Simulated assay, not measured.
Amino acid sequence: ASVGDMVPRAKVPAAVALNSMGFNITRSVGPAIGGIIVAAAGAAAAFAANAISYIGLIAVLFRWKPEVPAPTLPREALGAAMGAGLRYVA
């Protein structure tokens, strides 16, 4: 979901394709690696390896400061916003 925030607009299609390719490779290679870990060290080691693999991702997400566009509309009062939401649902 954040690919569009990380690359220039002109390169979004290529970045999405590369991201999809990475997901597909991971879906095919990941279970094999997991099976090897389970066979060699047990299920607990597989869960530990999975938990450790998220440390890098979490660190990157904490350091990432995406550009937030300046709001163009004024703030809306809570009651008015809830009323607008209810009208939309109705």
Rank of each mutant, 00 (worst) to 15 (best):
G4D: 02
G4A: 00
G4K: 09
D5M: 11
D5Y: 11
D5V: 07
D5N: 04
M6I: 01
M6A: 11
M6E: 06
M6G: 09
M6Q: 06
M6T: 04
V7G: 02
V7N: 03
V7S: 05
V7D: 03
V7E: 00
V7I: 05
V7R: 05
P8L: 12
P8T: 11
P8G: 09
P8V: 14
P8K: 01
R9Q: 05
R9G: 05
R9I: 10
R9V: 13
R9L: 08
R9Y: 05
R9P: 06
R9S: 11
A10V: 06
A10E: 09
A10H: 13
K11I: 11
V12M: 09
V12I: 09
V12N: 12
P13Q: 14
P13K: 08
P13F: 14
P13Y: 15
P13G: 08
A14E: 14
A14I: 03
A15N: 00
A15Q: 01
A15I: 02
A15C: 01
A15W: 05
A15G: 01
A15S: 02
A15E: 12
V16F: 10
V16H: 11
V16M: 15
A17V: 09
A17S: 15
L18I: 12
L18M: 09
L18F: 08
L18Q: 07
L18D: 12
N19E: 15
N19T: 07
N19D: 10
N19R: 03
S20F: 05
S20L: 06
S20H: 05
S20A: 15
S20R: 02
S20W: 07
S20C: 02
M21A: 11
M21S: 12
M21L: 07
M21G: 09
G22P: 06
G22F: 06
F23T: 15
F23Y: 12
N24G: 08
N24E: 15
N24H: 13
N24V: 14
N24A: 13
I25L: 10
I25K: 05
I25M: 10
T26F: 13
T26L: 14
T26W: 13
T26C: 07
T26R: 14
T26Q: 10
R27N: 13
R27H: 08
R27K: 14
R27S: 13
R27C: 04
S28H: 09
S28P: 06
V29P: 05
V29F: 08
V29T: 05
V29C: 04
G30F: 05
G30L: 12
G30W: 01
G30P: 04
G30K: 11
G30D: 08
P31W: 10
P31S: 09
P31R: 11
P31F: 04
A32E: 04
I33R: 06
I33V: 13
G34L: 00
G34Q: 02
G34E: 00
G34I: 02
G34S: 04
G35A: 04
G35Y: 00
G35E: 00
G35C: 03
G35H: 00
G35F: 01
I36E: 14
I36P: 14
I36W: 15
I36M: 14
I37R: 10
I37W: 04
I37T: 08
I37N: 07
V38D: 03
V38G: 11
V38E: 02
V38W: 03
V38F: 08
V38C: 02
A39H: 03
A39K: 09
A39N: 02
